[in-house]
Design a protein around this nucleic acid. Structure first.
Lengths: 124, 124
DNA sequence: CTGCATCCGCTACGATACTG
DNA sequence: CAGTATCGTAGCGGATGCAG
């Protein structure tokens, strides 16, 4: 392995680590939803259509563990739990938005590439 | 679902789609490696330590399908296959680098948050 | 050298039911 | 309301062997 690839491997491990969390199916939706305003557990569940209660729990746990969101418990009856972005979470929103802009700007190109690829596959 | 969350869901689906590809364990490494210069199949395999042949094949197929990399076959004996970024792939490198910078800049904060979280878990 | 096919374990995920 | 627990399944990903 070259020095250059070693340096890349080092950086890539960190980046992969972040991407493993941010890139997981639901994390980005939770972060984006909380980016608008804080939400309660079931508010998140309702707004993020299709997510199961289990996955929402696991997702917010992971995000909280990484310090991207905070979980505020109000021990009333019924209990109330609010989730909100931390400063760290908000700072993540910026590069993620950049990636989001890329995705939206190039969605057509990607879609075309896929159709071409799949079509050529049929000819082989 | 509100109009706002509907608009988010729409955008998030696209973003998730991109992240599902880019965020997969090996894709970013392949893109980053090809970002430096084109590589042959086994060059990639050697530089990206830990990747299995199967996953490298699947990863480059996926990236090729999405139009992010090109696969050039030279039918000699032994056969030679080169992979390189497309313009689309290079344009992706920019927002991904931004995310990479964030990851590197905040790796310590995330690591600290995790340790704190895990420590508090033991107390509960 | 570059891949594809097969087998197989593992874990992520969804559905459901139960608790404080 | 906000979870936890359990179970079943499906797909990811590694190891190996074969082919062009």
């Amino acid at each position: 392995m070259t020095d250059q690839s070693q340096a890349c491997a080092d950086a890539c491990l960190v980046v992969s680590d972040v991407l493993a969390r941010v890139g997981s199916k639901w994390s980005i939706m939770v972060v984006a939803t909380l980016g608008r305003r804080p939400h309660r557990f079931n508010e998140l569940k309702r707004e993020i259509e299709g997510i199961s209660q289990r996955m929402l729990t696991l997702t917010v746990r992971g995000l909280e563990r990484d310090g991207l969101i905070v979980r505020t418990v109000t021990p009333t009856i019924p209990p109330r739990v609010d989730y909100a972005l931390t400063d760290l979470g908000r700072s993540l929103l910026e590069p993620v938005s950049a990636l989001g802009d890329w995705a939206i700007a190039n969605r057509a190109a990607v879609e075309r590439a896929r159709q071409t690829f799949d079509a050529d596959l049929g000819q082989s």
